[in-house]
Amino acid sequence: MVSHSELRKLFYSADAVCFDVDSMVIKEEGIDELANVCVVEDAVSEMTCRAMSGAVLFKAALAERLALIRPSREQVQRLIAEHLPHLTPGIRGLVSRLQEQNVQVFLISGGFRSIVEHVTSKLNGPSTNVFANRLKFYFNGEYTGFDEMQPTVESGGKGKVIKLLKEKFHFKKLVMIRDGATDMEVCPPAVCIKHTNFFQLYFCFRQLL
């Protein structure tokens, strides 16, 4: 864990800052919340813990959980409308300060784009700065799968997004705020800051405001 003074210098020397989303920018795990709406939360929550520990390949774990949840388009929309994600205290102020310093902010998630786009709108960020997975539905709204072409469906996918961003925008210093074992893949090329619990994250955010 870097000191707060080192963290401050790191943020203000960065060209861009990328955030993991679930249990980081928001308190919840999006896929677990979706499982709750679909009334299969207990089984899916256990799978999520295994996926975050790196015990199974991410794509396999994602496919396994979605095969159990099988969310309809209506259920996804209901989740967004009725079960709004809770932003981590301090994150809105931190993102606002970074934006004031012309630091680009990206949300990179193994969760679902429809949920993450809602989160980024609450942070006054553009949807073009969101990298996440896409659910697929039949014309009648029934679940049909997920877009396997998105880099975030694979183990190592977040690292691919980081490389893409550095190549596209020529960032000299890109910082990634991460938590789970699956996010180790981005370090390098990103400079990584790891926060392992809510209280550490909250305190560091307050120190930067």
Rank of each mutant, 00 (worst) to 15 (best):
Ser5Ile: 13
Glu6Cys: 03
Leu7Ala: 12
Lys9Cys: 02
Ser13Phe: 05
Ser13Pro: 04
Ala14Gln: 07
Asp15Cys: 08
Val21Met: 03
Val21Gln: 08
Asp22Trp: 07
Ser23Asp: 10
Met24Arg: 02
Met24Phe: 15
Val25Arg: 10
Ile26Val: 14
Ile26Asn: 11
Lys27Cys: 03
Lys27Arg: 13
Gly30Lys: 10
Val39Lys: 11
Val40Tyr: 09
Glu41Val: 05
Glu41Arg: 07
Asp42Trp: 00
Ala43Leu: 04
Ser45Arg: 13
Glu46Ile: 10
Thr48Glu: 06
Ala51Gln: 10
Ala55Tyr: 07
Val56Ile: 12
Lys59Val: 15
Ala63Thr: 08
Glu64Trp: 12
Arg65Glu: 02
Ala67Pro: 00
Leu68Gly: 07
Ile69Glu: 09
Arg73Thr: 06
Arg73Lys: 13
His83Arg: 13
Pro85Gln: 01
Pro85Asp: 05
Leu87Lys: 08
Ile91Leu: 05
Gly93Trp: 04
Leu94His: 14
Val95Ser: 14
Val95Pro: 14
Ser96Gly: 15
Leu98Tyr: 01
Gln101Ser: 13
Asn102Thr: 04
Val105Asp: 02
Gly110Leu: 07
Gly111Cys: 11
Gly111Gln: 09
Phe112Tyr: 02
Arg113Asn: 03
His118Val: 06
Asn129Ile: 04
Asn133Met: 11
Tyr138Ala: 14
Asn140Phe: 04
Glu142Cys: 03
Glu142Lys: 00
Tyr143Phe: 15
Gly145Glu: 07
Phe146Met: 13
Phe146Pro: 03
Glu148Ala: 05
Met149Arg: 15
Gln150Glu: 14
Pro151Ala: 14
Thr152Ala: 06
Glu154Leu: 08
Glu154Ser: 09
Ser155Asn: 08
Gly156Trp: 00
Gly157Ser: 05
Gly159Ile: 03
Gly159Ala: 07
Lys163Arg: 12
Leu164Cys: 08
Lys166Gln: 08
His170Asp: 12
Phe171Ile: 12
Phe171Leu: 15
Lys172Pro: 08
Val175Lys: 05
Gly180Val: 06
Glu185Asn: 14
Val186Asn: 09
Cys187Val: 06
Pro188Cys: 00
Pro189Phe: 00
Ala190Trp: 02
Ala190Tyr: 03
Cys192His: 09
Cys192Lys: 06
Ile193Pro: 03
Asn197Cys: 10
Phe199Met: 11
Phe199Arg: 02
Tyr202Gln: 10
Arg206Leu: 06
